[in-house]
Structure formats: structure tokens, C-alpha cells
Amino acid sequence: MQKKKSRPDHRVYYWMILPAIFIYAALYLYPAISNLRYSLTRWDGIGTPKFVGLHNFTNMLTNDDLFFKVLGNNVRFSLLVVTLQTAFALFFAIFLVKNTRTTIFLRTLYFFPTILSSVSVAMIWLFLYDPNFGAINVGLKKFGLNSFALNWLGSENSALYAIAFTQIWFHTGQMMVIYIAGLQQIPLELYEAAEVDGASKWQQFKSVTWPMALPTTAVVIAYTTIQSFRAFDLVYAMTQGGPNNSSSILATLIYLTAFNEFRLGYAAAQSILMVITIVILTLVQRRVIRTKYGV
């Protein structure tokens, strides 16, 4: 009642949202909800799903070291990618915010990996990381840095980080462009004023760029987090999660549980725990950004 009186616009708003919500609900939410149903079953994708209650969840929490290992991998992977990629993107954006011939050229270059397909990127880095022929190790050995020439994707200690680095290489340019768009919104007067006050570049960054770019940072971080949880293509094409699941992330674990082992009910349950993890992480992030910087 009250809605109608005070906010007659709302009806128009509903109409504006309707097409989006319709497609989204039918093609995304509905399958997701079916998945919720499957998570309570044992299902091999062939017969009829058999209802097992919360068994999948209790098993995962009490009898599945692999799940926790992979969850840990995923958190490490995400933290690394989010921190480094955001930092790189911000710094490159600051360096390249002005429009000159060189900066435009470098922006174009940095964005370049983004337009490659993820399968291409995976294949390129699979080649670069080859422990015996790959350009990285061949280069390191040429400079006498033999002890740095690791078995990148073949060792449990380095595979996850090697893929994280590829992910950063792949997407930093994209985030940099977002940052440039954000930084160019900052009024130049603020910098001029800071310069008049004799502020150094670092002080300018601390007092002007960082606070003014916070909303952009929030978007970049939120997006990078989700993107890192979905780095399915790279992991799947480069290591399939190996060796010994050291580079598995939740997305590949779920995919392989469902389609390599045909435990679709269990995979559905894993994916629900993954959703919960992401939601918690995102909320924590927002809380931290909000309380620390008052955005």
C-alpha cells in the first residue's frame, strides 16, 4: 500500500528488472536449485538419485581430507592472486594513467593476454614451464641460476603457484584497465593541491590515489576473488589438479568428482560448500574494507 503511494516509480523499476530476472532465474537459479536437491542424494548420473539426507555433507566434513586440502589450495591460490594481481594492476594503472603514446602502447600490450582464450594461455604456459625444454628453465640455466630452475608444474610444492602466476599474467591487464577508468575519474585538482603542498609521489598515493580509488578496488577485489575461484580452465588444461591434487582448486575437484568419478550428488554437496566459502570470504572482505576505510 505504502509502496504505491510514496514510490509510484517502483512499478516501472520492476518492469525494468523483469527481463533480467527472468533469464537469470530460469537458466541459472533453477539449475542451481536442482543442484541443491542433488546434494542430498547419491547419484551416479545414470539411475535415479537416491536420497541420503545430509550424508554427503557430514562425510565431507568428517571423512574427506582431500576436500580440505583442496579448500586450502583454493584459499591460498585466491589470496595470492587477489593480492598480487590487484597490487600489480593498481601500480601499472598509476604508471599508465596519463595518455601518451608510450602509455597507450603499454596499456594495449598489457591488455593483450586478456584477449587470448584461456586454453591458448594454458598451452603457452605449459610449454614455458616445461622443466627440461621450457623457456623459463632454459633462460634461468643460461644465467647460471640452476637452483631456480624448478620442476614448476611437476612438483607438489610449486604447481599451484605456477598456475597462480599464469592467472596473474592472464588477468592483470584487464584489472589495470578497470583501475585506469577509476583513476581517471579522480579530479586532477586533488593532485595539484597535493603537489603544491610538496607531497611526494608516495604521499600523493597514500592521501589521494588510494582513498579515491577504493570503490574501484572493492570492485576489482570482489571480481578477482570470484574469478580466482573459477580458474577452472587453466588448472584443467595445465595439470588437471596434479601432482597429487597439489594444484586442485574447488572448481576442478567438483568437475572431476562429478564427471570423472560420476559422483554427482557428492559434487553437488561440494559445490554448495564452495558457495558458502565464497560468500563468507566476500562478506569478510567487504567488512574489512568498510571498517578500515569507511567505504
Binding site: R230, A258, M274, V275
Partner: peptide, 19 residues
């Protein structure tokens, strides 16, 4: 909509395929 960000696409692929 924000929830949709968190749901990994690959877990829905069987329901999506059937649909």
C-alpha cells in the same frame, strides 16, 4: 544476483544440460 556470483558454473552443468 550477488549470490549468482558465488555459484560456480561448472557444478550446474548437468541440470543446465538437461534443461
Amino acid at each position: 544476483f550477488a549470490l549468482g556470483l558465488a555459484i560456480p558454473g561448472q557444478v550446474n552443468i548437468i541440470p543446465i544440460y538437461l534443461l
